[in-house]
């Protein structure tokens, strides 16, 4: 078992950050914790990396208990906190060398593991970490978290503030690391990244909404979603929200995602209604739900 979390709760003063969280991550799995800021993701990461103690519940990481066996966990996990946490005044190479040393290893010893990533930042190895671009920093942080060949890798919002190109590269790297047998727990507020994980947990306000594979989660969506478009998006949203059969209306990129409360919904009815509201160029078509649709339906 990679990670096992059982009935974990955690409060800060009056705020309940985590409420009775349970889930399991199999060894070698790429597991995503998907939820907005303030959902409790970082608190959960800190409990699992032995930095915080939960008020209730138990958890194990790589089969070590997070409280009684915390020393063993610290030897066998890699952790990349949400905020860029490397020494800005040290160069790329010095940072990597430092983390290798405190984990009692050397860059050469585990070079295999980081090679793919390191070659991309190697041209800048004498540059101070503080002067790197966002994507480069993130790659360096990943190298530092991997340098001791951890069994479990914790990545707290690794792609926040990083551009799409670097994000794509980052996820490709995670896939390759997974193939080397590393269990990965990654958190992200971006729903579109969920599809890249083996399994995901949707989390909001300290509670898990659902745990499953991204495909299954999407399949469980209870309704047919329609993409609706018209000449004026704002008027369209207003009209849909006041439609008596409206189940949900959410702007979704260039469309509005609409679900109807009736089982025998006929799009033509809706077209007529929207036309009565003086909207034109109306398009309605069926579409498949996304993780984000599911999240909103569950969080409703």
């Amino acid at each position: 078992m990679g990670i096992s979390v059982s009935h974990i709760s955690k409060s800060y003063k009056a705020v309940k950050a985590l409420k009775d969280i349970s889930f399991e991550v199999k060894a070698g799995e790429l597991f995503g914790l998907i939820g907005p800021d303030g959902a409790g993701k970082t608190t959960l990461f800190r409990i699992l990396t032995t930095l915080l103690i939960a008020n209730e519940g138990t958890a194990t990481v790589a089969n070590f208990d997070v409280i009684s066996d915390y020393k063993n966990i610290r030897k066998s996990v890699g952790y990349m906190p949400g905020k860029f946490s490397l020494y800005q005044d040290l160069t790329v190479e010095e940072n990597l060398d430092f983390f290798a040393t405190i984990f009692g290893t050397t860059i050469e010893e585990n070079y295999d593991l980081i090679k793919d990533i390191y070659v991309q930042i190697a041209p800048f190895k004498d540059r101070r970490a503080g002067k790197l671009s966002g994507g480069m920093k993130q790659k360096l942080a990943l190298c530092c978290a991997l340098i001791h060949k951890p069994k479990v890798l914790f990545l707290d919002e690794p792609t926040t503030g990083v551009d799409p190109v670097s994000r794509k590269e980052f996820w490709d790297m995670l896939k390759r690391l997974q193939q080397k047998g590393i269990t990965i727990l990654v958190s992200t507020p971006y729903m579109d990244e969920a599809a890249l994980c083996d399994r995901i947990a949707l989390i909001q306000d300290g509670k898990i909404l659902e745990i499953d594979t991204p495909q299954a989660i999407v399949k469980h969506y209870p309704k047919q979603i329609y993409n609706v478009r018209a000449n004026n998006t704002y008027q369209l949203i207003k009209a849909l929200n006041t439609y008596k059969h409206n189940h949900s209306t959410y702007p979704f990129g260039e469309f509005v995602h609409y679900t109807d409360s009736r089982l025998n919904f006929n799009p033509d009815d809706l077209v007529r209604y929207l036309e009565s509201k003086k909207l034109s160029n109306i398009e309605i078509e069926k579409t498949n739900p996304t993780i984000e649709d599911t999240f909103m339906e569950l969080a409703k």
Binding site: P36, D37, M191, Y234, I237, F295
Partner: peptide, 15 residues
């Protein structure tokens, strides 16, 4: 980093 529903409300305000 905002939750999906609030984000929609935000975009409605923009529209």
């Amino acid at each position: 980093g905002v939750d999906p529903i609030t984000r929609r409300q935000f975009w409605e305000m923009i529209y």
